[in-house]
Design a protein around this nucleic acid. Sequence first.
DNA 1: GCCCGCATTTAACCCAAGTTAGCGCGATGC
DNA 2: GCATCGCGCTAACTTGGGTTAAATGCGGGC
Lengths: 237, 237
Amino acid sequence: MLSPLIALLERYMPLEPAERQALQELANQPRRFPAGADLVLEGDRPKEARLLLSGQAFRHKTLADGRRQIMSFHVPGELLDVQGLFMTMDHSVCALTPCEAAVIPHPKLVAMFEAHPRLALAFWRMNLVEGAVFREWMLGIGRRDAYARVAHLFCEVLIRLRAAGLSDGARAAFPVTQQHLSDALGLSAVHTNRVLQQLRGQGLLSFSGGELVVMDWAGLQAAGEFDPAYLHLSEAN
Amino acid sequence: MLSPLIALLERYMPLEPAERQALQELANQPRRFPAGADLVLEGDRPKEARLLLSGQAFRHKTLADGRRQIMSFHVPGELLDVQGLFMTMDHSVCALTPCEAAVIPHPKLVAMFEAHPRLALAFWRMNLVEGAVFREWMLGIGRRDAYARVAHLFCEVLIRLRAAGLSDGARAAFPVTQQHLSDALGLSAVHTNRVLQQLRGQGLLSFSGGELVVMDWAGLQAAGEFDPAYLHLSEAN
DNA sequence: GCCCGCATTTAACCCAAGTTAGCGCGATGC
DNA sequence: GCATCGCGCTAACTTGGGTTAAATGCGGGC
């Protein structure tokens, strides 16, 4: 049941049987969330951690007047609120599709970390990759123009969905609206739409009905100045 | 010698004598870096970690054409390249002032984490706060206008320098140029200068010669829509 | 099969911020 | 004491992207 998590961890660090066993013991009845529901709520001080098992979700902060910044998109296997282990949540995580999440009491998680310090390091490592993605997004929002930013995001999304086994090749379900894209990119919805049409017009991709199809990977990569190194996908420990 | 680190950790988690002892054993002859030198280099796969002991530094990514995004500023006590424990560095860290850093071999650090899992969690927690700051910056760069962005940055800097014991009250050394500020904020140097004058003209702050003086804290905070919650400074474990 | 609501698209207009270029000034060096 | 360089500052002009508002789908509920 926790196989998405185990697959993610095992990509970098071969797990010992005892460690795999300890992970399995985290499993319990998953909780379901409908699309649009909050999996994690800003201001909350959770007593358990949520591990995404199926579906897609996104992390976001919203200002008083409604302006919103989406900070990341999430695929199964990812722990959504590590932050809640140590402090109050300073942002929310919202379900993009119907989701299932394992809800793991903090004491259980901490006990596992203390019994298997290497697992703590493995989770920490996952967390560091998330930080690397934040930094790349900052670079994009701060220093790239809208065109490169949109292209870059689609490159990243395709690669990450593929790594999560949610795409074979050039096609993937990515059920976001143009408003979601805008909020992730720091653009207005109107301008996102303009850029999208440009990318479509150049035959780089198609994106509609929540399905992304990349038709010219090299072209899209060039348009987004995309270098996947920051995703640290093929780096063994 | 590692007192800045111990102070940071102890802010949240009272350390046991054995843990404090284990930390002390990390100490060694610190390495010196002149202002402008790279403490950590993008593309590097370090064999040791650098812990900032004195001075200020900043983390940045730079595009091929020279556009640069500064991702964070750092004060003594912070581990600058946790990422290097597990993967290649995808960005650099550069000294703002002359700096001293303890250079700690990875095996020594990992051994400490395995012997004292609670210390691993404490370092992880520090790392999570850094991630929270990244997210807040993303929100600012993506969704706040230049005026609020500049004000917000100065609020954050003052609070963090104060927490590091580098400021009493409203005045602090923050030795950056307006170009550094621009690169941190995703603005041009010219526009940063315009906003700076506006803030000065409103009597909110003065900033010259690398010294920040906040003259109207409430006003600055309002200008930057600043809420320090995301810094998680006063949250015990 | 019609209505409603959300998402996408278009068009017209506007403005915040970028760009370029040049000046002044203090610190550094010879 | 003079040239140099980095940094702050100013002004004039440009532009990428925001705003507003209205039209066009389109899918789901009943």
